[in-house]
Design a binder for these strands. Structure first.
Lengths: 182, 182
DNA sequence: CGGGCCATGTAACGGGTTACATGATTAC
DNA sequence: GTAATCATGTAACCCGTTACATGGCCCG
């Protein structure tokens, strides 16, 4: 259960609403943890029940009312516990339906697979471009919290870049190999 | 729902038992789709209900009895449909708790993160070694089915290698960066 | 005589997704 | 007038995990 822990992680930076959290996920960890808004609201409720967060209603006249969530001491402890926990080693949680399709692609003519791979490469390149904006966004957020945090944001962004680049390279070499064999 | 489809995929190669399937997952797609034996048995039952597979009891005296599963025409159609389906684009399904921990690592002293990263790199290197055996295993299986299939097995294995290598490189560069900043 | 392989399952639970529902304000 | 942004939620469902249960054969 990592969604609840990453919510706690964001709340450790400061008070936020469910909506803020939803945006925070979208603008930072979306490459390795996609979170649905509705799920976040659900999880916030559970965290409140467990007393890991407290909630304060904020009435607004110009905008819809909102709920500001704040992490408690117990919540911070739980978050830190998770942060240091060993966590399933590696590759155990990996689920990649795309690679599964490639694996079984002997069942259709090679052109289909070539098409899938080129579309995939294009997709990766697009995401690589999108991530070009990440360093700037880190710098802008980085000013708000201290640098201690933003280093790590940079590390995960770097992972994202390398990953996408690797995917592009792999897909292109795969296409080449398939074309050789036609 | 990709487990059921990959089961169909394996059965498209030939008749197998739940046990065989479990081994097949373990020796091929485990790097990007880990399947529990118990889950496979569950899924086989559902596939039988949907008439995507048929089941034949095989009585054995020397060994426990077993059930041989065979894909039906409807099953093959469903499998092919899935194989050609667009499938969620990319990165949407990605869930990586390890990167999540790195992202939030500003909350503990850098040494902890350095420790996590070195352990991670060691883990990846180990898996890289393990995958050295894959080409041989592909060749051995490859003889049984025609080459049409084994090319694709090689492509996914190549992905695994590149991925692990990228992880090692990234983790090492991350450690270097963290050590600079101490 | 212990461990590993063969071989199959059940029950409870957890975590996440999808689809749906609502509604005000602001900017083009 | 219509799209985007702000803002919160419910209900049903699905997929997968964990833990448990069973039991014979073969090899060292």
């Amino acid at each position: 259960m990592s969604l609840s822990h990453s919510i706690l992680g964001f709340l450790a930076y400061g008070r936020m609403t469910g909506y803020d959290l939803s945006k925070a996920f979208g603008s930072s960890v979306r490459f390795f943890w996609h979170a649905q808004a509705s799920h976040i609201y659900l999880e916030l409720k559970k965290l409140e029940q467990k007393q890991f967060v407290t909630c304060e209603q904020v009435l607004q006249t110009e905008k819809p009312n909102k709920k500001l969530y704040e992490i408690t001491e117990a919540g911070r402890r739980e978050f830190l516990r998770w942060l240091a926990s060993e966590g399933e080693g590696f590759g155990k949680g990996t689920k990649d339906a795309f690679l599964l399709r490639i694996f079984f692609s002997g069942n259709h003519p090679p052109e289909v697979c070539i098409g899938m791979l080129t579309a995939f490469a294009a997709d990766c390149r697009r995401q690589l471009d999108e991530m070009g904006a990440v360093p700037a966004s880190i710098r802008s957020y980085g000013g708000m919290v201290d640098e201690r945090h933003s280093i790590y944001w940079g590390l995960t962004a770097d992972f994202g870049n390398r990953y996408m680049q690797m995917c592009v390279d792999w897909a292109e070499s795969a296409v080449r190999r398939l074309e050789e064999l036609r």
